[in-house]
Amino acid sequence: MSTQLTQDEVLKVASLSRLKLSETEVTALGEQMGSVLKYIAMLDELDTTDIEPMAHAIEISNVFRDDQLQESLPREQALSNAPQTDGKYFLVPAIL
């Protein structure tokens, strides 16, 4: 595992993360992520071949809800926090 991320690596992750970064940020993140990843590399010491991954803090399964209607929000409330609407739809800059 590398100790510092290249500018290209940082930019690739930033693009996946949809984050526009300044040049200073790109440099700083390359270093900071590098040092955290270097520290994290200590996990390589451990042999985890036969260990089951643990995605939940507690073991639970089969939690369901019944197929019963709940009241939806009035449209004004659904749209109330949106940056841009026409009163009926969320609006975004042209996708196509």
Partner: peptide
Amino acid sequence: AASRGEAFGDEVKRRIM
């Protein structure tokens, strides 16, 4: 990207990255 880049602080960006 611009919205997220402008509105998130350094630590949040660091962890998202």
